[in-house]
Design a protein around this nucleic acid. Structure first.
Lengths: 332, 332
DNA sequence: ATTTAGAATGCTAACGTTGTCATTGGCGCC
DNA sequence: GGCGCCAATGACAACGTTAGCATTCTAAAT
């Protein structure tokens, strides 16, 4: 072991360390990084050699402080594991990373207090914009965002009174479309299974309103845990049901698994299913299983990319409806 | 519209703005935030009121610069969408967020150049540690990490010469376990389908070596795209195959879908399957479909949590093998 | 009454950059 | 030969915070 002086545990080399080694001043090094044309080729060569030798990597924190531009954006999702929101994160990250933005990712875990906390933690890092799934759960959170004075994109829904920009789709209409299809198919005893977050509730509302308007019996609603296993046994709690709208594909597939065990699933087309099942999300998997899953396809990736574009430009519409599609396969 | 003075487009309020409003100096405000006990209750009250009024949120960039602690950690994954790595990100984020760490998430998209670029972009934000899936693809990347002088956790494998810490499992042994099981079941014509990233290749090696050592015919290897659709038609390219190890569950389920169309899938137990299929990852979905998917279960969430713990403590073992389990269901 | 301790507060210099001015030479031009 | 001009480089303050050391004031101890 060499005897370790205070400098031995190297903190990262700084501009002035490079400058000293190259025999120039710090600003010259800074210019080699940012405005190489302003530096004489000979000097530039020496500085570049020094940077290589020390393994210099500019400190973006200091840059951000000096320029008042952090080149980072805050992202808040309910959860990232097994979730369709991962598509959105991927989409926005693919748009933003090439431009030098860092994505700070946080999860609210569907918890309003944690959401507020994460929002404020995010803001303390001075992101240039915030992209979140949904809208702030509390007025405190909303106020925080409004006061921040940066672009905010709410996604995965179309809020009535958005804080700023929106990239989403109409969850209510998704519920409407499913109810219309199911009742049109002659189903009469409908149910909605899934979470009770705001977006799921919007779907439920559209579903419920429409089913009743079309003369079906009042649909039932079953609130389930976030994992699909609860949905496996859900049909036991819905005696006589002949059509189910699941808040996401995972729940739908879980429910179908329960139906299969109960002998209520056919490998044939929708018309032969004792119980129709419609999901939401269009997981690739839904296309691959048998019977294949009918679902509301949403464009998670496009939502992310659109959100990114919305924070990059100040012109054009600030509320984008990416829509959805009812994809009919064999399950319902 | 109120007439907009230069202060009207408020940049976020600073410590000294709060100080001025409260009639104290900046350090006193700083102390109210960090060391409230040192400030007289009366003063503290005034400062807190001022903070509330202005909506003060401390600037973590400036804090980080002053204290040389960013409380951020860099995370590099190949991809986050539809991927089991999302579990790992969730796991580490759940450990780290409560401690005030920000997670900076980047994706390499299985591209070595992009990985190096992201690594250096990450380092420029001075994270206190880096957690990545796998090991750096290039020597440049590895050098970057070694010189950074911060904890580095490589995950999802057990590198022979780790840079620092490791939280993973033995991909080679996973291949061994699957081959052993399949050959033991009397299968003879094996194939491996999936990507050709380093981890998949390790699995293939264990699979291939073992199958041959046990006297099966030399397994075939089919490199597929990252999405599952390619795997749907894969069986056409593997005539006579009677057992398949897929690099992940999505590929496995896609492959099963192809088998089903070809009439080569039974709803009965493994012994009745013309072609056995084993996946890797243990997606919840695999348990729900019919036939249910046999798979190598890995602990993505635990990998993330362990990685987080490894960067938080300097004591204890720095290389953790989280293992895997062969979960046998109906597909093989 | 004087000292002493401590509680409360403040000043100044960092942290690693960049923006905004200097300053220094060398060159062509009338 | 003096003039301005540009190319190359540098000094200094600022960004918003904290660390380390004053300073002030009150109150108890002598």
């Amino acid at each position: 072991m060499s005897n370790a002086g205070p400098e031995e545990f190297h903190s990262a080399p700084t501009l002035s360390a490079v400058a000293k080694l190259a025999g120039v001043s710090s600003i010259t090094v800074s210019r080699v990084v940012r405005l190489p044309d302003l530096v004489a080729p000979e000097t530039r060569g020496r500085v570049e050699a020094a940077m290589r030798e020390l393994g210099y990597v500019p400190n973006q924190l200091a840059v951000a402080l000096a320029r008042a531009r952090t080149r980072s954006i805050g992202v808040l999702v309910p959860t990232i594991a097994n979730s369709i929101f991962a598509d959105t994160v991927q989409g926005l990250s693919d748009e933003l990373e090439p431009l030098g933005y860092a994505v700070i990712l946080t999860q609210s875990r569907y918890d309003a207090a944690r959401e507020d906390h994460m929002l404020s933690a995010l803001l303390s890092r001075r992101p240039e914009a915030i992209i979140m799934v949904g809208s702030p759960a509390t007025e405190d959170g909303a106020r925080l965002l409004r006061r921040a004075g940066i672009p905010v994109v709410e996604t995965w829904e179309l809020p009535v009174a958005p804080i700023d920009a929106v990239a989403g789709f109409d969850n209510y209409e998704a519920g409407v479309a499913v109810a219309r299809h199911l009742v049109g198919q002659g189903r009469n005893s409908l149910a909605f299974i899934g979470g009770d977050d705001p977006r799921a509730t919007r779907r439920w509302n559209g579903f419920n309103d429409t089913a009743q308007a079309l003369g079906a019996r009042a649909p039932r609603r079953l609130i389930l845990d976030r994992n699909a296993s609860g949905s496996v046994v859900a049909h036991a709690e819905l005696p006589g049901v002949d059509a189910v709208f699941a808040a996401n594909d995972a729940h739908a597939i879980g429910f179908m698994s329960g139906l299969r065990k109960a002998g209520l699933l056919r490998n044939g087309p929708a018309a032969e299913q004792p119980v129709a099942v419609i999901g939401l999300g269009d997981l690739e998997m839904g296309r691959l299983i048998a019977p294949s899953l009918s679902t509301i396809r949403v464009h998670g990736d496009a939502i992310g990319r659109t959100a990114a574009k919305l924070i990059l430009t100040r012109t054009g519409p600030r509320q984008v409806d990416l829509g959805f599609e009812l994809v009919l396969r064999d399950s319902g």
